[in-house]
Design a protein around this nucleic acid. Structure first.
Lengths: 408, 408
DNA sequence: AGCTTTAGTTCATTGCTTGAACTATATGAG
DNA sequence: CTCATATAGTTCAAGCAATGAACTAAAGCT
């Protein structure tokens, strides 16, 4: 049977739709079309009309609003061969957002313009283990102010920002529910203080979720459905479905680190038993491989592990193989629950991919045959700064999807 | 930061919004408000205006369209105390949809009017194991025609229908990908033939998904996020999130029967290893309990199992306990992946709940402490005919959400 | 120079919600 | 019995948004 989705659909619940909503919707449609053009190709109004299905008249009017709001800029001419050349349009590179990150060993901030270009990026080492939120946020505020003024010197205005933290968050209230590796639990962050007067404010993200969003923007294959698995001290995940982050009813979906992979396994820090994290988390792997992680930093321990693997040390190889097999079990179950067929490995899983891949694919074949094609297990295209860029990118995207927020 | 959802939001992709879309959206809004009123309470136009936020003028105009389309009916007066009494509105009970079901042991059809009343219901025993789709569908077509004419005698018109089958389906094409217990694989069903001339056609559902939707409409607690676990020969599931069926990118999410609960376990019919179904499926449980399922029918075997449990037979108790524990493992992992916190047990899990509950809760406590509250594990409120009613209810709901499909 | 082609704007028309004014119909007080 | 009041529902001018046709603008080609 036919069940076409209406072009403009209201929510099931309670909210009347008026003609003004149509304009907001189409404003986002046009802006989204501009943003979706490959960098360097600047669409004309006529091209936008063709792409969106709107008339030239409507596009002209909508573009005018976007120009007035400063979200879009006209850039030179666009010769098409015969006929009058079109005027190129692009996201205004004079407007930007800031990505920020608090992690175990550092804080960081970066300014990303609307077109996606990274203008400034600063990482500041800082030991945030067992920290208190106040001082960390104060330090981040100072960093953000400096980075913001550097952007200001280049004539770039920061409209808003996004902060990624390694823990469970409630984005709607700016509350960090629990961040074990920082020692934070139930703290309300003063996000607005990070970017005073910024019209879009500051949004809060889980680190793995932000990294997943960064992947979404940088995947070479343009995949719109995948699970990003973040291997850090803890094992996190971000579930991207239909180019959207899927957070579930409670807001914390994709926590693959706590899928049960060994019912007879050991206790996890989450209180559960046999979680993936107890096998494939960084500390668990170091211990299984016989590498002391206590004394040195984790990056040193990781270097040692890589060395041991290169040397073919059996203990290390076995530890990684077991992690790969258990990761496979977790991914098999995930595939069944959310019917996803593509995985992106991040964090230490990306680093260890050469050794993980074999046991992982074998495990998937055993536990969920046919669900994942071989090419569907890939490595992060973003790398270390994923959370930083993802937080910024997500704020940009939310602006592209609701540009009316910036109208006078 | 503030991120209000627009009242009328267009899809991210490609579809212009016009003024007509606003009307479609508001038409659905008003109709949804009428449908959401408790049965027996018939809202007036003024009440609808108050509930939806639309003006009285708009509501009047929209209601006129719904009356013209025959979706809604005026019913008597509605004295409010002082002032002119309002005119009560209700979903037209002279219009209905048909729920249909093909299952292992029977075919069934029922007519449900728009207000949710079941007008006719017929179940016809039929052994569909290792069947061919053609004859089964032909028999169902005959049944549907009879039930439809019975409804016609009562002056009720059938607008469309929904068919539930136990297997993986592609709703958009009407194709059954695989239904192991029927012996079907890759068959294209002629759905339209079941209800010739019905303006809404016939939609196709997975059985567990349809049952989950029925639960959604009949939950006493009005929960809008839960996992329905269907225990039949196979173990299926339906994931309801935000009052919507969540099907995942591939369309087959919620397949909890094939979550890995025992990495060292036996082979599953799906090709996997250690799936929940190999422990908690009907045949698996009968075998583990030492009850022959081969000779007799499954309902007889289930009676035997219940008898054995009542008698305290150790083998039976152990089998059910193991199933409960493994179900807990699967639900623990599901909670992590989609962050759901409520489960509804259906099929034989509902029947066995008194014995399952203990080990299940204990297992949840072990593997996902704090994710499920005790009251969040409940038993199906619909019972046997869940799939039948769910398929019908879902078609009704899709009509309520897009009433313009029935306009002249 | 003139024709053709493409880009972008202007404008009358249509459709929708809105808010105010108005009509309709009940209860209750004098 | 009549009038005041309250609530339901309709009518209508106004505002806003997209549309499509007509028009202007600016290039290349002959």
């Amino acid at each position: 049977m036919v069940m076409p989705a209406p072009a403009v659909a209201g929510p099931g619940g309670t909210a009347p739709g008026s003609v003004g909503d149509v304009r907001r919707s189409n404003l986002a449609l046009v802006l989204g079309a501009i943003a979706d053009f490959p960098p360097g190709a600047h669409p004309s109004r006529a091209q936008l009309a063709a792409v969106t299905g709107l008339t030239k008249a409507s596009v002209s009017s909508l573009v005018l609003d976007l120009l007035d709001a400063g979200i879009v800029r006209e850039i030179g001419l666009n010769p098409q061969g015969r006929g009058r050349p079109g005027v190129g349009l692009e996201l205004n590179p004079g407007r930007a957002v800031m990505g920020m990150e608090v992690n175990v060993d550092y804080i960081a901030a970066a300014v990303v313009d609307l077109a996606g270009g990274v203008l400034v990026r600063e990482v500041q080492d800082r030991d945030n283990r067992k920290s208190v939120d106040g001082p960390v946020m104060a330090a981040l505020g100072v960093l953000a102010a400096r980075v913001r003024s550097l952007a200001g010197e280049k004539g770039v205005e920061v409209l808003g920002g996004g902060l990624a933290v390694p823990g469970l968050v409630d984005p709607s209230t700016g509350r960090v529910l629990t961040a074990p590796n920082l020692g934070w639990a139930g703290v309300d962050l003063d996000l607005a203080a990070l970017l005073p007067e910024a019209p879009l404010g500051v949004a809060l993200f889980n680190e793995a979720n932000a990294a997943a969003l960064a992947e979404l923007r940088h995947r070479p294959d343009g995949a719109s459905d995948f699970l990003f698995v973040s291997g850090e001290v803890g094992v996190g995940g971000g579930l991207v479905i239909g180019s959207e982050l899927f957070t579930g009813p409670g807001g914390h979906a994709g926590e693959v680190g706590h899928i049960v992979v060994d019912p007879d396994g050991g206790r996890c820090s989450c209180g559960g038993t046999g979680c993936l994290e107890t096998v494939a988390g960084q500390d668990a792997m170091f211990e299984a491989a016989g590498i002391g992680s206590g004394g040195n930093s984790r990056s040193a321990a990781m270097a040692k592990l890589l060395q041991a693997l290169d040397a073919g040390q059996p203990g290390a190889l076995a530890a990684v193989e077991r992690a790969g097999r258990c990761l496979g079990i977790a991914l098999a179950s995930t595939a069944r629950v959310v019917n996803i067929a593509s995985v992106v490995l991040g964090g230490h899983f990306a680093v260890l991919e050469p050794w993980l891949r074999g046991p992982l694919l074998e495990s998937l074949q055993t536990y969920a045959p046919g669900m994942y094609a071989a090419g569907q297990v890939s490595v992060s295209a973003v790398g270390e700064s994923g959370a930083l860029l993802g937080a910024a990118g997500s704020v940009i995207r939310s602006l592209v999807e609701a540009p009316h927020r910036l109208q006078a």
